[in-house]
Simulated scan of single mutants.
Amino acid sequence: MELVQQFEDAVASSKSLSERPSNDTLLQLYSLYKQASEGDVNAEPPSNPFDFVAKAKYEAWEALKGTPKEKAMQDYIDLINKLRG
């Protein structure tokens, strides 16, 4: 249960980072959060080929397919800690 609490704390602290992370880092945070909270991608890919943001989010999450929720939580925590310095 300690990992879940650390993950929730990291999610909360992600909203108060001193600097906005790069788009690549934001995409990594998004995909790790989705994998940790929902597991493997469970939606269809975006149907609009020009919705680049949705496509990037989907592909980033899909790339983590098979990653255990616990590992995704730990990776998210580690990334937030790195961003916080």
Rank of each mutant, 00 (worst) to 15 (best):
A12F: 07
L3N: 07
L26N: 11
T67E: 05
E59C: 01
L3S: 00
A12H: 10
D40H: 06
E62F: 14
L79R: 02
L26V: 10
P45D: 04
L64W: 00
V41Y: 00
M73Y: 04
N42H: 11
A72P: 12
K65W: 07
S18I: 10
Y30D: 05
K82I: 09
Q35W: 10
D75I: 03
G66R: 02
Q35F: 12
K69I: 00
G39C: 04
V4A: 13
K34Q: 11
G39H: 06
M73A: 11
S16E: 13
A56E: 04
Q5W: 13
E38Q: 13
S31D: 01
S13E: 06
K57I: 05
L32V: 05
I77C: 03
A12R: 12
K71Y: 10
E19I: 06
L29S: 09
Q35G: 14
K55C: 00
A54V: 00
Y58F: 15
Q74R: 13
F7P: 02
S14T: 10
S31A: 09
P21Y: 03
F7V: 09
Y33P: 03
D24W: 03
A36N: 00
E38H: 13
D24P: 05
R20W: 07
V11S: 03
E2M: 10
E44M: 10
Y76F: 15
Q5V: 10
L32R: 08
L83M: 07
D78V: 10
G39D: 01
V41P: 00
L3M: 13
L32T: 00
D78E: 11
L64I: 04
Q5T: 15
Q35L: 09
L32F: 08
E62L: 15
E38N: 12
N23P: 05
K55W: 03
S22Y: 08
K57R: 09
W61H: 08
S13M: 01
Q74Y: 08
L3K: 11
I80C: 02
P49K: 03
N48L: 13
K34D: 01
G85T: 09
D40W: 01
N48Y: 04
K55T: 12
A36L: 03
F7S: 00
A36C: 01
K55D: 01
E44R: 12
S31E: 00
Q74K: 15
L83A: 09
S37P: 01
T25N: 02
S37R: 13
G39N: 02
V41A: 07
G85D: 07
R84T: 14
P45V: 09
V53R: 13
N23M: 12
A36F: 04
S18Y: 04
K57P: 02
A56P: 01
L79E: 02
E44F: 08
E38M: 06
K15F: 15
K15L: 15
L29R: 03
Y30H: 11
K71F: 11
N42F: 11
D40T: 06
E62A: 12
S22T: 15
L83E: 06
F7Y: 14
